[in-house]
Simulated scan of single mutants.
Amino acid sequence: MASMRRPSLLILSALALGPLHGYAVIKEVSRLSADQVRLAAGTLYAALDRLSDEGLVEVDREETVDGRLRRYYRLTGPGATALAAEAEQMRRDAQMVTQRLRGAGPAGAPSPA
């Protein structure tokens, strides 16, 4: 399985605690990324459509608020599995990098064997 793009990872992470509507997903992604990732509405909904097509998220419910339709999305079982697998792969990668850096000498040069 290919690595997940960061926006997808953050969207799935935002939904991990429960269903959210689009604007709430945008705000949570911004919070989770320490404001490094700011999704535009069009980008979010394109990603949600793709994640839905992949079976990772689904519509939880719809409600009308101030005359506008608000759609809530939730993480599916396969979405939670994919998110957990990605987190585990990231953990292993970070561990490998940390181990390699510990073995590096000055200026990142490998230490003599």
Rank of each mutant, 00 (worst) to 15 (best):
V57F: 13
G77Y: 01
A82I: 00
S8H: 15
L9A: 12
A16K: 10
E88R: 10
L83P: 00
E58N: 07
E62L: 11
I11Q: 05
E63G: 01
M96Y: 06
P19T: 02
R100L: 15
K27T: 05
L75W: 08
K27M: 05
L12Y: 02
R50K: 09
L15D: 05
R50F: 00
A82C: 03
Q95L: 06
L83Y: 00
G22K: 02
R38K: 11
V65C: 04
L56F: 01
V59L: 11
V97Y: 08
V65P: 03
Y72I: 14
E58K: 12
Y45G: 00
G67R: 01
V29W: 03
L44F: 05
A82M: 10
G18V: 12
L83K: 02
L83R: 02
E62P: 01
D53Q: 12
D60G: 03
G79V: 03
T81S: 15
D93V: 04
V37R: 04
V65T: 12
A82G: 02
Y73G: 00
L44P: 06
D35T: 07
Y73Q: 00
D60A: 12
L83E: 02
V37E: 05
S8G: 06
G67D: 09
I11H: 06
S13M: 06
L12R: 06
Y23A: 14
D53M: 07
P19K: 06
G22M: 02
T81Y: 13
A46V: 15
A80V: 03
T64C: 09
Q95H: 04
R50Y: 02
V97E: 11
A46M: 10
A14D: 04
V97T: 10
L20C: 04
Q36H: 07
D49I: 00
L48W: 05
A14C: 11
S8A: 11
G67N: 09
V65L: 09
R70W: 07
S8K: 07
P19A: 09
V37K: 02
S30A: 15
I26R: 15
L15V: 13
L20V: 08
K27H: 14
T76R: 08
S13P: 01
D66S: 14
R61L: 05
T76W: 06
Q99M: 08
M96F: 11
S8P: 01
E88N: 09
A14W: 03
G79C: 07
R100M: 10
E88F: 12
V59C: 04
R68A: 15
Y45N: 15
V97P: 00
L32C: 11
T81C: 06
D66K: 14
R92K: 13
G55S: 09
A94I: 04
L51P: 10
G77C: 01
M4S: 09
A16R: 13
R74K: 14
T98K: 15
S8L: 03
L12Q: 02
V97L: 13
